[in-house]
């Protein structure tokens, strides 16, 4: 997933960025509320992880501004405020989850996946397409019951295309969903990943739409 992390504390921010990257996510990290709101409006994030006590603009304000303007992606609050009042206020203002520090990184990952799944309108944890089955939590892919080994980026790309089944995704969109701002991206990176996925899962899985992008058609 492409994530926006907004956390003003250096140590937590850096650890979260690295930890979420270890789980295969592409994470952009910002430290203030105003920049976070701009980035959210600008980028294609699958979810936002938001601290509440932020410089320049409070997290709650960021949420209410974004939701007011119809921002749809899941927003997860990560905070050290743990009063019931804070939780209720946070969830009611449009957040999808409320996670109190200190938290477990695995759990944070699970909550992210759950929020993302709900946003995608799925109830099943696994994504199934034909004889291909993807388990986002375990990051495992099977084809006809046999495990297929994918790299982190290949996995993210496959999941992204499956979640947007029937819709053509441009190369820029795909790139954005896989890489954060800091990544050095080879110009043919997406082509390479698509090539590898076709090799491992069958050449008909991903269709190239000429001069537009790629799509996985509905089964």
């Amino acid at each position: 997933m492409r994530l926006l992390l907004v956390e003003d504390d250096e140590h937590i921010g850096r650890a979260l960025q690295t930890g979420l990257a270890q789980q295969g996510h592409a994470v952009d990290w910002l430290q203030d509320g105003v920049a976070a709101e701009l980035a959210a409006r600008d980028g294609q994030y699958d979810a936002i992880l938001l601290d509440l006590g932020l410089p320049r603009q409070d997290g709650m304000q960021v949420i209410s501004h974004l939701r007011r303007d119809g921002y749809a992606a899941p927003i997860l609050i990560i905070t050290s405020r743990d009063e019931i009042r804070d939780r209720v206020e946070g969830l009611d203002s449009g957040a999808d989850d409320f996670i109190v520090k200190p938290f477990d990184l695995e759990e944070l990952g699970a909550r992210l996946r759950a929020a993302h799944r709900r946003a995608m309108g799925r109830s099943q944890a696994a994504v199934v397409h034909g004889d291909i089955r993807i388990d986002p939590a375990a990051r495992q892919v099977t084809r006809a019951g046999l495990a297929v080994s994918l790299t982190g980026r290949e996995f993210m790309l496959l999941l992204h295309l499956l979640e947007h089944r029937g819709h053509v995704r441009t190369r820029a969109q795909l790139q954005e969903s896989l890489y954060n701002w800091n990544s050095d991206i080879e110009s043919n990176a997406i082509e390479v990943h698509v090539h590898n996925l076709r090799r491992k899962l069958g050449k008909d899985l991903i269709r190239t739409v000429h001069s537009q992008g790629y799509v996985i058609d509905n089964a």
């Binding site: 650890a15 690295t18 990184l105």
Partner: peptide
């Protein structure tokens, strides 16, 4: 409340370190 923040940083860093 104030202790939560450094504790959260310690925990997160420890987990990241394990999975480095």
């Amino acid at each position: 409340h104030e202790l939560r923040t450094p504790l959260a940083a310690i925990r997160a860093n420890a987990q990241v370190l394990v999975a480095a």
